[in-house]
């Protein structure tokens, strides 16, 4: 997955498996939310995302459910 660490992204939409999308909402991921990836584990392992004031590990496939728009570097 082609994302840069420590860069802010905005969630602009969702796509993928219904179960994953439901759980993503339940964990607080919604459109317009700003998130940041803080760590990528090797061999396409989980990505660690900062959402509000918490970290959430997402598998690549789960992170791919988020449609993202990169925000200008602050």
């Amino acid at each position: 997955m082609d994302i840069s660490l420590d860069t802010f992204y905005e969630i602009v939409g969702f796509s993928g498996d219904a179960l994953l999308l439901e759980r993503l909402s339940e964990m607080g991921f919604r459109k317009e939310k700003k998130i940041r990836f803080i760590q990528k584990l090797p061999f396409r392992g989980p990505l660690v995302v900062e959402l509000d004031q918490t970290h959430i590990s997402l598998r690549e496939e789960e992170a791919q459910c988020l449609q993202l728009k990169q925000l200008a570097i602050p």
Binding site: L19, I56, L58, R59, E62
Partner: peptide, 12 residues
């Protein structure tokens, strides 16, 4: 069969 997910919140 069913979808597997990991999605784990990392506590402070």
């Amino acid at each position: 069969e069913a979808k597997s997910f990991f999605m784990l919140e990392l506590p402070l």
